[in-house]
């Protein structure tokens, strides 16, 4: 846990006069970093863990080493949540994303402390956190607008009303960027769920702390369980299972490993899932956010319906 938070609570205790100077003796309660599936925080079913270390060689935590089974469970949760989430009013999705930003803001200290432990500087951590919050706000605003921008009423020649609208693809598997443990995660998730998809995210292997804490933010943000599922573990173990899964509609890969990219593309052919490589995006910059990123996980649906033309301008009736 963040040290500052502990100090604060210790202070409060002493002010209450119940105890004096207990902080030095009190045993710190360590947080268990669990994964997030279907709105629950299970441990990995495999019972495995790994222990990432920072540059200073300090152990970050014992983190779940998620298995393919965990991924499959998460896909089931995501599929189950898709109908409800995509069926919600876009306005309501916007409210929930905004709520996520609020909750993130409220737990600033904790995230900063985690970022610091994951080799960030104070200024960089502050910046990353602020960007992450702002990014959620940015996409909260897009939820009920991008459809207007990317829809079309098509002037077909026959007597039909014809329109094209974006619709969410379904379940999206995301391999989050290794750097920007918080910002990268948020930036990859937000456009996907803003558009009504549900997702399973594999967090940064080396910087996983914020992802689990972010799951706690999600869990307190009115976001229905299963919309975002967060796993920790090793991409090398999991990617192929993510790309092979027949019930995943799209895969987003945020690293620039060309052999991994080639294998993702090859394996995606199994059900022709859509694949996107966000290897060139700098999440810290403006290019890290865009409605075009929302559109990546949208399908365009075109609907036709006849237009009755009786009595219209001397119609043929």
């Amino acid at each position: 846990m963040a040290k500052s938070a502990i100090k604060k609570s210790a202070l409060r205790v002493s002010e209450n006069g119940l105890e004096k100077k207990t902080s030095s003796k009190r045993l710190e309660v360590l947080k268990t970093y669990k994964i997030y599936i279907g709105g629950q925080f299970p441990r990995t079913e495999s019972g495995r863990y790994y222990t990432p270390v920072n540059k200073a060689g300090e152990k970050l935590a014992n983190v779940c080493l998620s298995s393919r089974k965990d991924f499959r469970d998460a896909v089931v949760a995501a599929r189950g949540a898709f109908g409800g989430w995509s069926g919600r009013a876009a306005f309501n999705r916007g409210q929930i994303l905004y709520r996520m930003a609020e909750m993130l803001e409220g737990r600033k200290e904790q995230f900063i402390s985690e970022l610091l432990r994951q080799d960030s500087t104070k200024a960089a951590a502050q910046k990353e956190l602020n960007l992450a919050i702002d990014r959620l706000i940015y996409y909260a605003g897009w939820c009920d607008k991008f459809q207007q921008l990317f829809s079309a009423v098509n002037p077909v020649a026959s007597s039909h009303f014809n329109f094209s609208v974006p619709e969410p693809m379904g379940v999206v598997a995301i391999v989050a960027p290794q750097g920007d443990g918080l910002l990268g995660l948020v930036s990859a998730i937000a456009p996907v769920i803003a558009g009504g998809n549900t997702c399973v995210v594999l967090a940064s292997e080396t910087k996983p702390l914020c992802s689990v804490t972010f799951a706690e933010v999600l869990n307190s943000s009115d976001l229905p369980g299963g919309v975002v599922n967060i796993l920790t573990g090793k991409p090398a173990e999991l990617i192929s299972g993510m790309v092979n899964h027949m019930d995943v509609n799209a895969t987003i890969y945020c690293e620039n490993n060309s052999s991994v990219k080639a294998s993702i593309r090859e394996q995606s052919a199994v059900n022709l899932k859509r694949i996107y490589f966000y290897d060139h995006l700098n999440w810290q910059k403006d290019e890290g956010q865009s409605p075009y990123l929302i559109m990546d996980t949208q399908e365009i649906k075109t609907t036709w319906h006849p237009i009755e033309n009786i009595a219209g301008a001397g119609g043929s009736y």
């Binding site: 026959s158 007597s159 039909h160 006849p306 237009i307 009755e308 033309n309 009786i310 043929s316 009736y317």
Partner: peptide
């Protein structure tokens, strides 16, 4: 008779 089949104008034309 109010339940007579509906006719789609564009289709029938």
């Amino acid at each position: 008779f109010s339940l007579s089949p509906r006719i789609d104008q564009v289709g029938v034309e």
